[in-house]
Amino acid sequence: MTVQTISTQTIPVHDGATIHPGWVRIGHWINAIAMIVMIGSGWQIYNASPLFDFTFPRGITLGEWLGGALLWHFAAMWLLVVNGIVYVTLGLVTGRFRRKLLPIYPSDVLHDVGAAFTGKLSHDNISVYNSVQKLLYAGVLLAGAVAVFSGLSIWKPVQFQELTALFGGYDFARYVHFAAMACIVGFLVVHVTLAILVPTTIKAMVVGK
């Protein structure tokens, strides 16, 4: 009689198949550049009229002053939005989002968070996302969408006044926009840290495997 252990799933580590198709990788890095520009210039714009009792140190902002930052922000927004539309459309149409990001169960998330902090979370197969990853990737997509739409409502609060009203009016929309940025930056900190800890993920996002 043999005793089978089923505590660890046997998942093929690398079968040589492509983990990230080309459109994912290109979209990911274009988005990375656009996001850095949007965040850096956004911080400079924020500094012109801070919402809270702090400003961002100049060294980490982009654009040198309000006018320059606005030029960067309103240029990179096209990169962000056009790339974002292509990325989300392909993600939905190809079924990748559904396959990779769903379903997300709270119990799994809790379990995986616990596993992560006790060092038991497996990274053997980076083509399958754990629940925490799923939650974060889906969440940052949502935060990106909120950032874009709240940004639109701040950019054109008269022409898009219905949208502005949806975000609670112009002044409140600025807080929403800030909160979306804060979520994205929070994601970035975790995302970049973990990618550095598990470098195979960076390789996969560059060469696909």
Binding site: I33, I36, V37, G40, S41, Q44, A48, R58, G59, I60, T61, L62, G63, E64, W65, L66, G67, G68, A69, L71, W72
Partner: peptide, 29 residues
């Protein structure tokens, strides 16, 4: 003109290239 009154007071040095010095933030890249 791109120069905007409200921003003029934030302007460190009008003769300098205004848009780009902050590009140093892209240093990591």
């Amino acid at each position: 003109k791109l120069l905007i009154k409200d921003a003029a007071k934030l302007l460190p040095n009008p003769s300098r290239r205004l848009f780009l010095r902050g590009a140093a933030s892209l240093g990591a890249l």
